[in-house]
Computed example of a mutant assay.
Amino acid sequence: MASEPQPTARARRPTLSITEAGRRRAVLAFSGRLDAGALGELEERLVDPRLLDAQEVVLEMGDLDHIDLACAYALIRAATGRPQSAALTVRGADRTVRRTLHAVGLDAVAVIEE
Rank of each mutant, 00 (worst) to 15 (best):
A36S: 11
V90L: 09
S31T: 09
L34Q: 05
M61A: 15
L46C: 13
A72P: 00
L101P: 02
D35Y: 05
T80E: 15
R99T: 13
P49Y: 06
E41Q: 10
A26D: 00
V27E: 05
Q55I: 03
Q84L: 15
V104C: 10
P14D: 09
V90P: 06
I18N: 10
L88Q: 12
Y73P: 06
I76H: 09
T96D: 15
E44L: 06
R25A: 04
A21T: 11
T100L: 07
C71Q: 08
R24K: 13
L88I: 09
T15C: 07
A38H: 13
T19Q: 09
P83T: 07
A74M: 03
G81L: 11
E20A: 12
Y73L: 07
D68Q: 02
A29C: 05
R99W: 02
L39G: 10
A87W: 04
A21Y: 08
A26H: 00
P14N: 07
E20P: 01
L88F: 12
A11W: 07
L16S: 10
G22H: 06
L69N: 14
L75S: 02
M61V: 01
E56Q: 11
I76P: 13
D94L: 02
V27P: 03
P49F: 10
L101A: 03
A74N: 02
L42A: 06
E60W: 14
D35S: 08
T96K: 07
G105H: 08
E44G: 14
V104K: 01
L16E: 10
A21R: 09
G62K: 04
R82D: 07
D48P: 06
I67R: 03
E56R: 14
R24N: 13
L16D: 12
G105T: 08
G105N: 03
L59Q: 06
A21P: 11
L28G: 01
I18R: 08
T19D: 09
M61D: 00
L16C: 12
A26R: 00
E44C: 14
S31I: 14
G62A: 11
G37W: 06
Q55H: 07
I76Q: 07
E20C: 11
L69Q: 11
E56F: 09
G22T: 14
L39C: 12
V57G: 02
G37D: 14
S31C: 08
R13K: 15
L69R: 13
A93F: 01
H66L: 15
L28R: 00
R99E: 11
F30Y: 08
I18L: 13
A72Q: 00
D35L: 01
G22L: 07
E20I: 03
A36F: 13
L34R: 03
R23Q: 03
H102L: 02
D53H: 11
S31F: 09
A70N: 02
E41S: 10
D94Q: 01
V97G: 03
A103E: 08
G105Q: 11
E60M: 05
G22S: 15
A78L: 03
D35H: 10
G105M: 12
R23L: 11
R45G: 02
V57D: 00
R13P: 15
E20N: 12
A36N: 13
Q55Y: 06
P49E: 15
D48C: 09
